[in-house]
Design a protein around this nucleic acid. Structure first.
Lengths: 345, 345
DNA sequence: CTGAAAGCGCTTACAG
DNA sequence: CTGAAAGCGCTTACAG
């Protein structure tokens, strides 16, 4: 493997000059040409570890997500990588499994690696983020430190769901969630949903499932059990169920159908996220669509601004939209035309 | 940030001794204790860039996949990360978008970064892999060099699909694929499928769609068009369609239903991959299930063996299984019990 | 077993 | 603008 020294020798200049060419600092055109030639000739590749050791920048970002099994996170990581690759950054991906210890171990890894910055979807209450001594963009969570929070407009999402249930004549609705109960943007989903429904005179309750488990199957069983208990003699206590994610909306719908109920005729279900069948087909359920791509873009943009000490937003809230996916009444039959079009960039 | 020198000072030993403690080389117990205390006290984190510069190992792996939009790749990356994290490695994720240039740029990045090894799902014909001067595990592709190929048993998959169609009385089947036509394990899907059907006296054809596009929407349109053209007066030319992936099986099924045909009554569809609704629900279509977890494990295991100069397999072929997902006849009504159980580790 | 020292491949003031 | 040199934080023979 050729080093900067080899290049300098071949080009007849000093290593300092080669370094400058590498970093696009001005050198005499003649020298630049010779260095570039030598680089080409030797198939030279800069050693990022040496570069990272000496310089401050590593052009590396890490993203912490619970896992890539949830399609929403997979999509988010997909787009984040795409945006970063376009500007010459690489991406470490870290699955936290919602475990504070794991998150911490990644934060330390980030420090060890001198990663330039971190994008995190966190469900733990780790104080490590508060005193983040590195550029940090958080999804859905605000931190006291110098970080940026990117989120979809959860209040708007809650309201859209409420409006749908109100407009279709629901009498008793429930918000089923099991995310974090810590301060965070996602709490607004439920608050706004419940407030809006209550103001419309609809009976409104909520139920929260423990976040003490990373075993999704356990959560799923809990939700299924709750749905079963809420249903007697083919009638459910609720006629409108708003779930904090599409995955859970799916589980709820499935359980209702197992119990012999018809969705949306007997009762309606709305999810959150906007996931589509294998990411190319229709929506699984009626849902509040999060603008994943735009969120990825906002994350990267603000993180890089922060890294480069340019002004950045402390908070970015992006609009959501409601889309009918067969689990609500009165939606157009046609699939959302945009749905098919927004796969490619 | 504390350095190894700070630790050495505080512990009253030399940096060499600290380094040894870090790498678990034997030092006098008393010294080890003092070093560990100092590390704790100073909250010392080793700088991986310095370590990477000096030592050969970086404890970093990169994985190249087309994208994370396809749930199969997302799952694969998820499990690879999980296995790697458990042994102290970190993971770069690189989306190639099936573009040879992009793959090459990542390979070079890998070299620059001195990544310890590479796991790659490649669809380009890049010769870079052939002369891979780094540990490489490839999914579905064999390379001449010192690499390892991990794949599901594609021949078995093709045969299982054929058997299903034969057993349910199909008369005219087709294999629809659009992966790479380069030498690779996936070709066996079609070969074995078609051969088995032909031997059973069934009319068997195949169609391949261009891989010249990374625009999945274009491929989807092509497939939809082909299905439309194969269907006249509510009758399709085929009564058994085997698709090279679940995504395409979904598209085919959707298009057939749009044309007024009933699946599986009028004709059957089998996909490949074994993807499930949001990774927690039922199967989208009847399919050949690839053992993603086991594949991830095999990739990491052999890559690490290769890195550590321990014996490794040149080829790992893992068994698949057929599972009914509503698009084939004569399958049990109950969902596959294992389906629900295999989400968690 | 341990310490002193060289050196990994870069970047960055500092002279010139 | 360019070169010589120091130094980033580690690891690794080499003596002792």
């Amino acid at each position: 493997m050729a080093t900067i020294k080899d290049v300098a020798e071949k080009a007849g200049v000093s290593v300092g000059t080669v370094s400058k060419v590498l970093r696009n600092v001005y050198v005499r055109p003649e020298n630049r040409r010779r260095v570039e030639e030598a680089i080409e000739l030797l198939n030279y590749q800069v050693n990022t570890y040496a570069q990272g050791l000496r310089a401050s920048q590593t052009y590396t970002i890490a993203i912490i997500v619970p896992d890539l099994i949830n399609p929403f996170f997979a999509l988010l990581v997909n787009y984040v990588e795409q945006v970063l690759a376009a500007i010459g950054y690489r991406l470490f991906v870290c699955n936290s499994h919602c475990n504070a210890g794991r998150e911490l171990s990644y934060i330390n890894m980030v420090r060890r690696n001198k990663v330039d910055g971190l994008i995190a979807v966190t469900y733990s209450n780790s104080t490590e983020y508060e005193n983040a001594d590195f550029p940090l963009v958080s999804i859905d969570r605000h931190y006291a430190g110098e970080s940026c929070c990117v989120a979809s407009d959860n209040a708007m999402g809650g309201e859209l769901a409420a409006r749908k249930f109100i407009d279709t004549g629901c009498r008793s609705v429930i918000y089923i969630h099991n995310g974090s109960l810590l301060e965070g943007e996602t709490l607004k989903r439920g608050h706004t949903f419940l407030n809006t429904c209550r103001q419309a005179g609809i009976r409104s309750t909520e139920i929260h499932f423990s976040e003490e488990t990373t075993l999704d199957n356990v959560r799923i069983r809990q939700i299924e059990q709750f749905i079963s208990q809420s249903t007697r003699d083919g009638r459910c206590d609720y006629d409108g169920i708003f779930a904090s994610s599409d995955v859970h909306a799916m589980v709820i719908r499935r359980q209702l159908e197992r119990l012999g109920l018809k969705v949306p005729e007997d009762l309606q279900v709305i999810g959150y996220d906007g996931m589509r069948v294998m990411n190319v087909g229709g929506y699984y359920v009626s849902t509040i669509v999060q603008p994943v791509k735009e969120m990825a873009l906002a994350c990267v943009d603000n993180l890089i601004r922060r890294i480069e000490n340019r002004p950045y937003e402390r908070s970015v809230i992006l609009p959501v939209r409601f889309v009918g996916g067969g689990t609500t009444k009165g939606d157009p039959d046609q699939p959302d035309p945009e749905a098919e079009a927004d796969l490619t960039w």
